[in-house]
Amino acid sequence: MTAETPAREPADVRRTPWWLWPHVLSLEAPVVAVLWQAALAHAHGIRLTPLLGAGLALACWVVYLLDRTLDTLAVKNVAELDVRHAFYHRHRRVLLLGVIPPALLLLGWMALCVIPQGVLWQALALALLVALYLASWSAQGSRVSRDVFVSCAGLGGVLLLSRMPISSGTKFTLSLLVLGVMVLSFLRQLDIRMGNVLPKELTAALLFAMGCTTSTRFFAMPETIAEPVLECLLLTLLFGCNLHGITCREAGLQDEHRHARLVLGTLGFVLAVLWGVELGLLQHSLFGPARAALGAVLLHSVVQAARRRYSVEAYRVLADVALILPLPLAWW
């Protein structure tokens, strides 16, 4: 587990160890999302139906399947792929034609028949942002895929605006703005990649955090917007440490100073939230998640400090485990 895998060894001839399969099959992200959603629900004193957890897990899994499959479409040298992407490159036709479409149909049925309407509209808005994310980063190697995701996001945005409780004039203006963005994107006059403003890792972390907090944000019905914003930001920074750490490890530790600043900033923010709760300035429902986040940041720091002892694959697994192990702190 601690042996370094040769970087240029063809991925299809490497043997995948048993402990790496959950990562290869993209099962780690749904597990993290569902467990953190459960921790947030407990902190808010609400009980979510199991189908909400199943819907979140399935949606998260589909997004990761699309993200990792689209990453392999423009690959020219298969030998340079890691074990994870080599798997998606070999099975991309099965995934795109036989796995993802039925999963999307099941998600559609759950959205129409199972998910409460308030949660549904928040989930649809998040789905539009995910579509833009996939178009911005994952589908850049395929113009057709990129245009499909931009079209879905644009048309979905217009549909969502038509159902919002705002004036007709505002709906018309915002719809024209959305359609204008679509046209500029199709004409290649607009680069929707926002890497210079918000790096890919933090964008993905923000979307992931928004997904984890969608149900609790609706059912908890907070009196002010401060609590859900702080809660989402707390998870965004935590998940950002995870994703940025993995990126740095894959890049050969070339950006470790920026990662150290991100970890220290996250630690400071978590401690500030805990201090605010202790002083009575913030809602007590933030205490459990912040305590679990504190444990996760500290455990991530331990994994990061020992990063040279582990292979890239082992580091990925340990970084994800660091997000889960401290979760019991949210219940104490």
Rank of each mutant, 00 (worst) to 15 (best):
Trp36Val: 07
Trp36Leu: 11
Gln37Ser: 15
Ala38Pro: 03
Ala38Met: 15
Ala39Gln: 10
Ala39Leu: 15
Leu40Cys: 12
Ala41His: 14
Ala41Val: 10
His42Pro: 10
His42Trp: 15
His42Val: 06
Ala43Thr: 00
Ala43Phe: 00
His44Phe: 14
Gly45Val: 00
Gly45Phe: 07
Gly45Gln: 10
Ile46Leu: 08
Ile46Asp: 05
Leu48Glu: 09
Leu48Arg: 12
Pro50Asn: 05
Pro50Met: 04
Pro50Gln: 04
Leu51Met: 12
Leu51Trp: 15
Leu52Asn: 06
Gly53Pro: 02
Gly53Met: 06
Gly53Ser: 15
Gly55Phe: 05
Gly55Ile: 01
Leu56Pro: 09
Ala57His: 03
Ala57Leu: 06
Ala57Cys: 05
Ala57Asp: 12
Leu58Val: 04
Leu58Glu: 07
Leu58Ala: 10
Ala59Pro: 01
Cys60Gly: 12
Val62Cys: 09
Val62Met: 11
Val62Lys: 02
Val63Arg: 10
Tyr64Asp: 05
Tyr64Gln: 10
Leu65Trp: 07
Leu65Lys: 04
Leu65Val: 05
Leu65Asp: 07
Leu66Glu: 05
Leu66Val: 05
Leu66Ser: 01
Leu66Asp: 01
Asp67Ala: 11
Arg68Asn: 13
Arg68Met: 06
Arg68Gly: 05
Thr69Val: 01
Thr69Arg: 01
Leu70Gly: 07
Asp71Val: 08
Leu73Met: 08
Ala74Arg: 13
Ala74Gln: 12
Ala74Glu: 13
Ala74Leu: 13
Lys76Trp: 09
Asn77Gln: 05
Asn77Thr: 13
Asn77Asp: 08
Val78Pro: 04
Ala79His: 12
Ala79Thr: 03
Asp82Ile: 06
Val83Arg: 15
Val83Ala: 14
Arg84Tyr: 12
Arg84Gly: 07
His85Asn: 09
Ala86Gln: 08
Ala86Ile: 00
Ala86Tyr: 01
Phe87Gly: 00
Phe87Glu: 05
Phe87Pro: 00
Tyr88Cys: 02
Tyr88Glu: 09
Tyr88Asn: 03
His89Asp: 14
Arg90Glu: 02
His91Lys: 13
His91Thr: 04
Arg93Asn: 04
Leu95Arg: 00
Leu96Met: 11
Leu97Phe: 10
Gly98Asp: 06
Gly98Pro: 00
Ile100Val: 14
Pro102Trp: 12
Ala103Cys: 11
Ala103Trp: 10
Ala103Lys: 07
Leu104Asp: 08
Leu105Pro: 09
Leu105Glu: 09
Leu106Thr: 11
Leu106Gln: 01
Leu107Tyr: 03
Gly108Thr: 07
Gly108Pro: 04
Trp109Cys: 15
Met110Glu: 13
Ala111Cys: 09
Leu112Met: 09
Cys113Leu: 15
Val114Ile: 11
Val114Asp: 09
Ile115Arg: 00
Ile115Cys: 05
Pro116Ala: 04
Gln117Gly: 03
Leu120Val: 14
Gln122Tyr: 08
Ala123His: 02
Ala123Gly: 11
Ala123Gln: 09
Leu124Ala: 10
Ala125Ile: 04
Ala125Leu: 12
Leu126Cys: 06
Ala127Trp: 11
